[in-house]
Simulated assay, not measured.
Amino acid sequence: MKFLLLLVLFVSSGFAQQTSVFEVKGMHCPLCTTAVKKAIKKLDGVEKVSARLNTKKVTVVHDEKVTIDSILKAIKTTSYTGTLLLK
Protein backbone atom coordinates (compact mmCIF):
# COMPACT_ATOMS: atom_id res chain seq x y z
CA MET A 1 0.00 0.00 0.00
CA LYS A 2 2.78 2.44 0.90
CA PHE A 3 4.60 1.55 -2.32
CA LEU A 4 1.53 2.33 -4.39
CA LEU A 5 1.07 5.68 -2.65
CA LEU A 6 4.72 6.59 -3.22
CA LEU A 7 4.47 5.57 -6.86
CA VAL A 8 1.40 7.75 -7.39
CA LEU A 9 3.10 10.73 -5.74
CA PHE A 10 6.26 10.24 -7.80
CA VAL A 11 4.41 9.95 -11.10
CA SER A 12 2.12 12.91 -10.44
CA SER A 13 5.04 15.15 -9.44
CA GLY A 14 6.68 14.44 -12.79
CA PHE A 15 3.80 16.09 -14.60
CA ALA A 16 3.66 19.35 -12.67
CA GLN A 17 2.84 22.28 -14.88
CA GLN A 18 4.51 25.65 -14.66
CA THR A 19 3.55 28.93 -16.26
CA SER A 20 6.20 31.37 -17.41
CA VAL A 21 5.63 34.82 -18.91
CA PHE A 22 8.06 36.54 -21.26
CA GLU A 23 8.24 39.95 -22.85
CA VAL A 24 9.16 39.79 -26.52
CA LYS A 25 9.83 43.28 -27.82
CA GLY A 26 9.67 43.90 -31.54
CA MET A 27 6.63 41.80 -32.35
CA HIS A 28 4.58 44.09 -34.56
CA CYS A 29 2.10 41.92 -36.45
CA PRO A 30 0.12 38.68 -36.12
CA LEU A 31 2.73 36.81 -38.15
CA CYS A 32 5.34 37.74 -35.54
CA THR A 33 3.29 36.24 -32.72
CA THR A 34 2.60 33.14 -34.80
CA ALA A 35 6.31 32.61 -35.48
CA VAL A 36 7.19 32.94 -31.80
CA LYS A 37 4.39 30.57 -30.74
CA LYS A 38 5.41 27.95 -33.32
CA ALA A 39 9.05 28.06 -32.23
CA ILE A 40 8.15 27.57 -28.56
CA LYS A 41 5.56 24.84 -29.28
CA LYS A 42 8.32 22.73 -30.85
CA LEU A 43 9.88 22.21 -27.41
CA ASP A 44 9.06 18.87 -25.84
CA GLY A 45 7.04 19.47 -22.68
CA VAL A 46 5.31 22.69 -23.75
CA GLU A 47 1.58 22.36 -23.16
CA LYS A 48 0.26 25.74 -24.32
CA VAL A 49 1.59 29.02 -25.72
CA SER A 50 -0.25 32.30 -26.06
CA ALA A 51 1.17 35.54 -27.43
CA ARG A 52 -0.43 38.97 -27.11
CA LEU A 53 0.61 41.50 -29.69
CA ASN A 54 -0.70 44.53 -27.79
CA THR A 55 1.30 43.76 -24.61
CA LYS A 56 4.26 41.97 -26.30
CA LYS A 57 3.83 39.18 -23.72
CA VAL A 58 4.11 35.46 -24.34
CA THR A 59 2.72 33.01 -21.78
CA VAL A 60 4.01 29.44 -21.80
CA VAL A 61 2.48 26.54 -19.87
CA HIS A 62 5.05 23.78 -19.65
CA ASP A 63 6.27 20.89 -17.55
CA GLU A 64 9.45 20.96 -15.50
CA LYS A 65 11.51 19.38 -18.31
CA VAL A 66 11.36 22.66 -20.20
CA THR A 67 13.94 25.19 -19.06
CA ILE A 68 13.64 28.95 -19.24
CA ASP A 69 16.85 28.96 -21.28
CA SER A 70 15.36 26.62 -23.88
CA ILE A 71 12.31 28.86 -24.26
CA LEU A 72 14.53 31.95 -24.64
CA LYS A 73 16.60 30.12 -27.28
CA ALA A 74 13.43 29.16 -29.16
CA ILE A 75 12.32 32.79 -29.15
CA LYS A 76 15.76 33.83 -30.42
CA THR A 77 15.36 31.54 -33.48
CA THR A 78 12.65 33.95 -34.65
CA SER A 79 15.06 36.93 -34.52
CA TYR A 80 13.42 38.31 -31.38
CA THR A 81 14.77 38.50 -27.86
CA GLY A 82 12.71 37.41 -24.91
CA THR A 83 12.95 38.56 -21.31
CA LEU A 84 11.56 36.48 -18.45
CA LEU A 85 8.95 38.43 -16.50
CA LEU A 86 7.36 35.74 -14.33
CA LYS A 87 8.08 32.15 -13.49
Rank of each mutant, 00 (worst) to 15 (best):
M1L: 10
M1H: 06
K2I: 02
L4V: 06
L6G: 13
L7S: 14
F10V: 15
S12H: 02
S13F: 12
G14M: 14
G14L: 14
G14W: 06
G14H: 08
G14K: 08
F15Y: 09
F15L: 13
F15T: 01
A16T: 01
A16L: 14
Q17S: 11
T19N: 04
S20Y: 09
S20K: 03
S20N: 07
S20I: 09
F22I: 07
E23V: 13
E23P: 10
V24A: 00
K25I: 09
K25P: 08
G26I: 11
G26R: 02
H28D: 06
C29P: 01
C29M: 02
P30V: 11
P30Y: 01
L31S: 11
C32G: 04
C32D: 02
C32E: 00
T33K: 03
T34D: 11
A35F: 04
V36P: 01
K37R: 12
K37G: 13
K37W: 04
K38A: 14
I40L: 06
I40E: 03
K41P: 02
K41A: 10
K42H: 05
L43N: 01
L43D: 10
D44V: 08
D44W: 05
D44A: 12
E47H: 07
V49R: 01
V49L: 05
A51F: 08
A51K: 03
R52S: 13
L53G: 02
L53Q: 02
L53T: 08
T55L: 07
K57D: 09
K57R: 15
V58W: 01
V60G: 10
E64D: 10
E64R: 07
E64F: 12
V66H: 00
V66E: 03
T67K: 02
T67E: 09
I68E: 13
I68T: 14
I71P: 05
K73S: 15
A74F: 04
A74W: 01
I75T: 09
K76G: 11
K76D: 12
T77I: 05
T77N: 12
T77Y: 08
S79K: 09
Y80I: 03
T81A: 10
T83I: 12
T83Q: 13
L84T: 13
L85G: 00
L86V: 15
K87A: 15
K87E: 14
